[in-house]
Computed example of a mutant assay.
Amino acid sequence: MRQMRERLGTPRAAGVAGVLFALLMAAAIILVRLALPGGADGTEITVDAGQRGAVQTALELLPFAGISFLWFMGALREQAGAGEDRFVSTVFLGSGLVFVAMLFGCGAAAGTVLDDGQPPSAFGRHYAYTLLTTYGLRMAAVFVFTASTIGRRLGVWPRPLILLGYAVGLVLLVVGADMPWSELVFPGWALIVSLHILKGHRPTDHPSPTTP
């Protein structure tokens, strides 16, 4: 019982890290979208100083967003403790790590617009958007699905939040790049979950399933 309470004592770290990730990720997405509104299929190839500055700022935010997400993921997994399902937990951890890898890869590809005096690489832009919206969002969907499943099985999340998670995961999995600005759905979900955790809605007074 004491061990379970100690593990459930980490949600504040998860909440703070989740809020930081959500804000940084959303800011980076908005900056890139506004600077390169054409997305992967945009026909414009001229990028002015203002657009370069916006993309540069977004790329500087991405590493911190990725680091915050790792803390968020680790703190969420710590909440599961000994009650975690190994299969679900493995998928949860794997999808989160792959998402971060794709996020950093997307940032590296998006950096092609920052070469002064050179037109942005059409391949680099297409690669960056495809990596984020086609593959990254699918990994984010798996992460949301598994996080919601863990929250449901352990009873640490309320039913509305679990249903929201499954809905968000479905949108990310099925819609993906077909819906403009769909990248913001994931940080939006992370923000809602983090605020819920920071409010302290968790059953710390419930007995452990192994308690006689």
Results as ranks from 00 to 15, higher is better:
G107D: 03
G107H: 08
G107R: 10
A109N: 00
A109H: 03
A109G: 03
A110Y: 06
G111F: 00
T112D: 12
T112G: 15
V113M: 14
V113S: 01
L114E: 07
D115E: 12
G117I: 09
Q118E: 14
P119V: 12
P120I: 11
S121F: 09
S121C: 13
S121W: 11
A122T: 05
F123W: 04
F123N: 00
R125L: 15
H126C: 03
Y127R: 07
A128P: 02
A128H: 07
Y129R: 08
L131F: 10
L131T: 15
L132W: 05
L132D: 02
T134C: 02
Y135F: 13
Y135N: 00
G136P: 14
M139Y: 09
M139I: 01
A140L: 10
A140N: 00
A141H: 07
A141M: 07
A141C: 13
V142I: 05
F143E: 05
F143S: 14
F143K: 01
F143V: 06
F145M: 08
T146S: 15
T146Y: 04
S148M: 02
I150A: 08
I150H: 04
G151W: 10
R152M: 11
R153D: 14
L154D: 00
L154M: 04
V156L: 09
V156D: 08
W157R: 13
W157Y: 10
W157V: 05
W157M: 15
P158C: 06
R159D: 11
L161D: 00
L161E: 01
I162E: 13
L163Y: 08
L163W: 14
L164N: 03
L164R: 06
G165I: 10
A167D: 09
